[in-house]
Design a protein around this nucleic acid. Structure first.
Length: 560
RNA sequence: UGGGGCGUAGUAUAAUGGCAGUACACCUGGUUUUGGUCCAGGCAGUUGGGGUUCGAAUCCCUGCGCCCCAGCCA
């Protein structure tokens, strides 16, 4: 591979480069990640987090973590805590700059007063229904509110009374006086403040009026002296309003830049749908290892680096796109291949008796911990007369391309001996109970002195020494590329997204630290799950499988 | 015949008037004590039409397609 030094710059970085050239922001770069604390962060947010913090990092700038908590009826501290956890976990640092929109409520109120005083806002008596009726349509202009021309004094007075709690929810709003026939609906006298007698997670009952997003967000950015306010495409239509407010107020004015949000196939990320999965118990919670939430991915075994590399790799543009979830999986595999200690584990065991091996003998055989990492060293694994191998590594009547064990066939047991299958022992129903093999003592370690080769190498564990474990084979939650297309997304649920194997047998794990991710050779990456293992069981979950070209061949062969 | 945005291999992303490149996916082959990894090679693209230009993915005109907007949500 030829090393290329050219750094690929996305369109936002190009804007920043130009700004630095022109001195627009005095070479300052200051972004923010502004989640609303009304739910858990998911992989889509990770893209935004990596973008905002990443762009600051690359430009020696800063990035704030700011909670956009302007709607008390939806927001909770629980979410604040989980969001902080998740951003921290991804490895980003906002230093002392943890902010809340609610910190600025007083200032926002004063700015609203300014707007009113300048004749740019008015108190409106219309109900939300009336307002909708007067808004017009996409193609037709709206009608002005009858209250649009109230005097400044009256507006001031009424707004004051709104704030004082003189009116019930919905009775009045503060609106910007812009243009009811504007082709952009966001400019048709949008609401600035609404009345909400609700307790706010931080300000309690201090306020009963709360700012709308468009009003609040630009002011938050302005107060924090953000340079580049990065948001998703659907806010493009809001930019004229963002700009209008800041211009009318004549205050510090960041540049809003929109990019396309992340979409992944075989995945849903809409908050409503994720909540439905949890509420209807299709998954075991927000951090279920199959969930695309950051807490779910973390529990599954995704690493911060794998997610950051993924986010970096998919790029940033204004095009709607759907990323292949394989890319996310590959990003994880790429890291784990380099770091995960290898271990032998049999998921679905089949007993093997080595008939010519002495009873009661145990040998310790050397096994490499990680062929990708010289420093990982080696370990010793016990070998004895009775072993387990993977059920699907044996076939009674194997096809030619099957390189594993079958009657009369010889394979290598990894790091151990060549063995040849001599007998199949079945029960009265004809199902295979165990198989008998002979081993070649000359092949210790896995090489034949006579130079004879075997096609296959399979994994195994010593029956006497194995640890019992339950293994959960997680797979994609959805079986359709686009679960939302055509009908109910729940119909696209993959019925096999969690297969439980209750009788797995693992090599005694000498490397003890919890939460370590192992590669079970030939199978995939696995980690012990603390929640499932809390009652003293060993429950391992599959983080991600290894690429499996045999499985792919089989699948194609079966006409899939 | 409302406004805004977007169209480059299967997917994603570069190339800002000068050889259409990269990654993933897919296919071949090689190495291999993991059917993993790694290595080599291959397949495959500028939304249609017209124009400007020595030269167009790029500039202009004109179609076509897709996404977003009518919350007192963000």
């Amino acid at each position: 591979m030829s090393e290329s030094n050219t750094v690929i710059k996305n369109f936002i970085q190009k804007i920043i480069d130009e700004d630095n050239l022109s001195g627009k922001w005095s070479n300052r770069v200051h972004t923010r990640f502004p989640p609303e604390p009304n739910g858990y962060l998911h992989i889509g947010h990770a893209k935004s987090i990596c973008l905002n913090f990443g762009i600051a990092e690359k430009n020696n700038g800063k990035c704030n973590l700011r909670f956009d908590d302007t709607n008390p009826v939806k927001e909770e501290d629980e979410y604040v805590i989980s969001i902080i956890d998740d951003v921290k976990w991804l490895g980003f640092d906002w230093e002392e700059r943890l902010y809340y929109a609610s910190d600025y409520f007083d200032q926002m109120y004063d700015y609203a007063l300014t707007l009113i005083q300048n004749g740019d806002a008015f108190v409106c008596d219309q109900s939300s229904d009336q307002m909708r009726d007067c808004r017009g349509t996409l193609k037709q202009p709206g009608e002005e509110s009858p209250n649009r021309n109230r005097s400044i004094e009256e507006n001031l007075e009424l707004f004051q009374r709104m704030k004082n709690g003189d009116y019930p929810d919905g009775e009045k709003t503060l609106r910007a006086k812009i243009d009811m026939s504007h082709s952009n609906l966001n400019m048709r006298d949008p609401v600035i403040y609404r009345i909400l007698h609700a307790s706010h997670h931080r300000t309690g009952n201090k306020w009963c009026i709360y700012p709308m997003y468009d009003w609040a967000h630009g002011l938050e950015d302005s107060i924090e002296e953000i340079t580049h306010s990065i948001c998703t495409l659907e806010f493009e239509d809001h930019r004229p309003l963002y700009d209008w407010y800041l211009e009318k107020l004549d205050v510090y004015h960041p540049q809003q830049i929109e990019f396309a949000r992340l979409n992944l196939n075989f995945t849903v990320v809409s908050k409503r749908k994720l909540k439905k999965l949890v509420d209807e118990k299709h998954v075991e919670g927000w951090d279920d290892p199959r969930m695309p939430t950051l807490s779910g991915l973390r529990r599954r075994g995704y690493t911060p680096l794998s997610i950051r590399n993924f986010a970096e790799g998919v790029g940033v543009t204004k095009r709607d796109s759907i990323i292949d979830v394989v890319r996310l999986e590959n990003s994880l595999r790429e890291e784990l291949n380099k770091t995960a200690p290898r271990v032998l584990g049999v998921l679905d065991p089949l007993k093997v008796v080595i008939t010519n091996y002495p009873e009661n003998k145990t040998e310790m055989l050397e096994a490499i911990n990680n062929p990708e990492d010289e420093n990982a060293g080696s370990r010793e694994v016990p070998f004895s007369k009775e072993l387990y191998i993977e059920k699907n590594d044996f076939m009674e009547d194997p096809p030619r391309k099957f390189f594993r064990l079958g009657p009369g066939r010889e394979v290598r047991l990894r790091y151990a001996y060549f063995v040849t299958c001599t007998d199949i022992i079945k029960d009265e129903n004809g199902t295979i109970k165990e198989i008998h093999c002979t081993y070649d003592p000359e092949t210790k370690g896995g090489n034949a002195p006579d130079g004879r080769k075997v096609k296959g190498t399979i994994h195994w564990v010593s029956a006497e020494h194995a640890i019992d474990a339950e293994v959960r084979l997680y797979d994609r939650l959805f079986k359709k590329e686009n679960p939302e297309e055509g009908g109910d997304f729940l119909d696209a649920l993959n019925p096999d997204s969690c297969k439980i194997l209750p009788d797995s047998k693992l090599e005694p794990l000498l490397l003890e630290p919890e939460s370590i991710i192992y590669q079970f050779e030939r199978l995939g990456y696995f980690k012990k799950d603390d929640v499932f293992s809390s009652n003293g069981n060993n429950v391992f979950i599959r983080v991600v499988s290894l690429r499996d070209s045999w499985a792919r061949m089989m699948k194609q062969g079966s006409g899939q």
